[in-house]
């Protein structure tokens, strides 16, 4: 099964504007900005978290710590799958106890990744609250989970695939819509 490119949904400028807005929303909604920790989910949640952190520093002059979270060990399909996901290191530089976490990921789809990420975060400590930031919400949730900060909501069909590119992971920036060819 191959993937066919359909169209570019967001270019670099659109991503920047969306992330900019999300940064403002985070600043606005947090009770205490200095308690905020941005946690990016491997792989493309991390550049989003870093981008947000940079913007918050730009607007508020405050260093918001960024953590990296690998959710592989928390996936709910490990006993069934036929391929072996590579486990990466989880690095959260601060004690998350009592902190306001903003979990960052590129795309929200079924919600299963977020479910795994929430379990992973709980194992690291007891934050005072957790909010969710995603660049793209493509719908089709299988669990009762919603994002608090959304870059853009896009209607998709299940046969379509959203591919997000960031400079640090892919060498360019943009969001593409692809279709799987069966």
């Amino acid at each position: 099964m191959g993937l066919r490119w359909k169209k570019r949904l967001m270019d670099e400028g659109e991503i920047n504007r969306a992330v900019n807005r999300m940064a403002h929303e985070i600043i606005e909604r947090s009770a205490s900005l200095k308690d905020v920790v941005l946690v990016g989910v491997h792989t493309r949640g991390i550049p989003l978290a870093e981008h947000l952190s940079k913007l918050i520093h730009h607007y508020e002059g405050l260093e918001v710590p960024v953590g990296k979270l690998d959710i592989t060990l928390y996936r709910d399909d490990l006993t069934e799958i036929g391929v072996q996901p590579i486990v990466r290191r989880t690095e959260v530089p601060v004690d998350i106890h009592g902190r306001e976490l903003v979990l960052c990921d590129d795309v929200i789809y079924t919600g299963r990744t977020v479910r795994a990420a929430l379990d992973a975060l709980m194992d690291l400590g007891r934050p005072s609250l957790i909010r969710l930031a995603v660049l793209v919400d493509r719908g089709h949730r299988e669990l009762p989970i919603q994002a608090d900060y959304v870059g853009r909501a896009i209607q998709t069909s299940r046969s379509e695939v959203i591919k997000v590119h960031f400079h640090s992971t892919d060498g360019e920036e943009g969001v593409d819509l692809l279709e799987s060819e069966s």
Binding site: L73, Y74, L78, R89, T90, D119, A120, D123, L124, G125
Partner: peptide, 13 residues
């Protein structure tokens, strides 16, 4: 990293 946590338990297996 898991072994350095306070709660040393993950659901992977």
């Amino acid at each position: 990293e898991v072994m350095q946590r306070k709660v040393k338990k993950v659901p992977s297996l």
